[in-house]
Amino acid sequence: MRALRRPVTAPKLHWADLQEPDRAKVVQVVAELRAEYLVVVGTPVDLRRQERARRKCLERMLEHLQSWNVGLYLLEQRTELLNKKDMNTVNAARQSRRITGSIRLEHVAPSTEPLAWVADVIAAVRARAKSGRKDYGELLQDKLVEDELDLL
Rank of each mutant, 00 (worst) to 15 (best):
M1V: 09
R2H: 06
A3K: 12
L4V: 07
P7W: 02
P7A: 04
V8G: 14
A10L: 01
A10H: 07
P11F: 03
K12T: 03
W15F: 01
D17N: 11
L18Q: 14
Q19W: 07
Q19L: 12
Q19T: 12
E20D: 12
E20W: 09
P21L: 03
V26Q: 02
V29F: 11
Y37S: 12
V39C: 11
V39E: 03
V40H: 00
V41D: 05
T43V: 10
T43K: 11
R48T: 13
R49V: 01
E51G: 10
R55W: 06
K56L: 13
L58D: 12
L58I: 13
E59S: 04
R60M: 08
M61Q: 13
L62A: 12
E63W: 09
L65C: 13
W68H: 14
G71D: 15
L72D: 07
L75D: 12
E76W: 04
Q77G: 11
R78D: 09
E80R: 05
L82H: 01
K84F: 02
D86R: 00
M87S: 08
M87G: 02
A92E: 14
A93H: 07
R94N: 10
R94V: 07
Q95Y: 06
G101R: 02
R104M: 00
R104N: 03
L105N: 03
L105V: 12
E106T: 01
V108E: 01
A109V: 04
P110M: 02
E113F: 02
P114N: 10
A116D: 09
A119N: 01
D120I: 02
D120Q: 07
A123I: 13
R128K: 10
K130I: 05
S131W: 01
S131K: 00
G132T: 05
R133L: 04
K134A: 05
Y136Q: 06
Y136H: 08
G137S: 04
E138K: 06
L140A: 00
K143C: 09
K143Q: 14
V145M: 15
E146Y: 13
D147Q: 14
E148L: 13
L149F: 14
L151D: 04
